[in-house]
Amino acid sequence: MTALTAPAPGGRTAGAFAELTRANARELIRDPRNFFFVLVFPLIFMGLFMFMGMLNPGGGPGGPGGFDPVRSGIPAVLLMAFMSLAFFGTATPLISLRQKGTLRMLGTTPLSRTTFILAQAPVRFAIALGQLAALSAVALATGFLEPSAIGRLLVTCALGLAMLFAVGYLVAARMRNPELANGLLALVMPVTLMLSGVFLPMEIFPEGLRSVAGHLPTTYFADALRQDLVGVAGGPIVTAWLVMAGVAVAAAAAAVALFSWTDGEKR
């Protein structure tokens, strides 16, 4: 985020917020790595699932294949896109800013931690809304998404995004090396996606692992997405919403409390 600059001393919080929001938008557009992982990579996977559906047109729950790659792929790709945006598009750039000393410069201004963290959200929620709109259009065109379920889907995605962004901010609050963070997230994210049941059926896991995976916050998000987006039966949707909201509040509070402008900041 080389485009970030310190807000003018004595400037109002609203002005600093707007300036930081614009800087974040420029950073996401200009950084090729973020652009690829946040916008291009999920589209590649969606294209792969659609290609698999073309190769197996008789698939689906009622077909001879017993598996519909498009129906399974839509919620999987949306969850992956949201996680990429929260982690690769949010956490690692913030860690890089700290390493470069940009956060130390911002820390010398009246800018508060809360304002800085919240300023990351608008452009990222806008990108997420575009991702949701694109995949919802596919789900509507294929007949999986019922128009009556769109309102509930928006609630699910809002809570899921709040949860993922809060966790992303929490990761950024304490990690110091962006390369290490990228490597760790590149390992954790696919494992989490697989354990959430969006790429692999939960039934293939050993009983103990299945029990642990079933209680992951991302599993609740994935289950809610499958219900709302492609009409697959699942657990109580209110339970999923409560879990996501609880994790979002806890992670956000921890991120604000633990966030530091520099590596050596004392608390």
Rank of each mutant, 00 (worst) to 15 (best):
A91N: 08
G89D: 06
F49G: 02
L103E: 10
L94N: 10
M54V: 01
P75R: 08
F45L: 12
T109L: 15
M50S: 04
A86E: 05
S96E: 13
A91K: 12
S84P: 05
M46W: 03
I95L: 05
M83A: 15
G65L: 09
G107T: 11
L85I: 11
S84R: 00
L79Y: 07
S112F: 09
F88G: 08
G53Y: 02
G62S: 03
M50V: 14
L85A: 09
L79K: 03
G73T: 09
G101P: 13
F67C: 00
P69H: 09
F116D: 05
F49P: 03
L78A: 11
M105K: 12
L111T: 13
S96F: 06
A91P: 07
K100A: 14
F87P: 03
R98V: 07
R113H: 15
P69M: 09
G63M: 00
G89Y: 08
A119C: 11
G65Q: 10
M52F: 12
M46L: 14
T92Y: 02
G62Y: 03
P61W: 00
G101T: 14
F82R: 04
G101W: 10
A76V: 07
T92D: 04
G101A: 12
V77M: 02
L94D: 00
L103T: 13
F45Q: 12
I95P: 12
V70W: 00
A76G: 10
G62H: 03
P93V: 06
P75G: 05
Q99A: 13
A119I: 07
A86L: 09
T108M: 13
M80S: 06
T90Q: 15
G59A: 05
M105R: 15
L85F: 06
L106I: 05
G101S: 13
L85H: 07
L94Q: 09
M50P: 01
G60R: 05
L78E: 10
I74A: 12
R98Q: 11
G73I: 02
A91T: 10
G65W: 05
A119D: 07
L48S: 05
T92C: 01
R113T: 15
F87R: 03
K100F: 02
G58N: 11
G47D: 04
L106P: 13
F87V: 06
T109V: 14
F49W: 09
S72G: 00
F67H: 07
L85Q: 14
G58S: 08
G59W: 03
V70M: 03
V77W: 02
M54P: 00
A76P: 11
G89A: 04
T115W: 06
M83S: 15
P64N: 09
L103Y: 11
R104T: 15
Q99G: 04
D68R: 04
F45K: 04
M52V: 04
D68H: 01
G47S: 09
L55H: 01
K100W: 01
A81I: 01
L106Y: 14
G59Q: 04
G65M: 02
T102I: 15
L85C: 09
G60M: 02
G89S: 01
A91S: 15
R71P: 07
P64V: 09
P93K: 12
Q99W: 02
M50I: 14
G58C: 00
G53H: 05
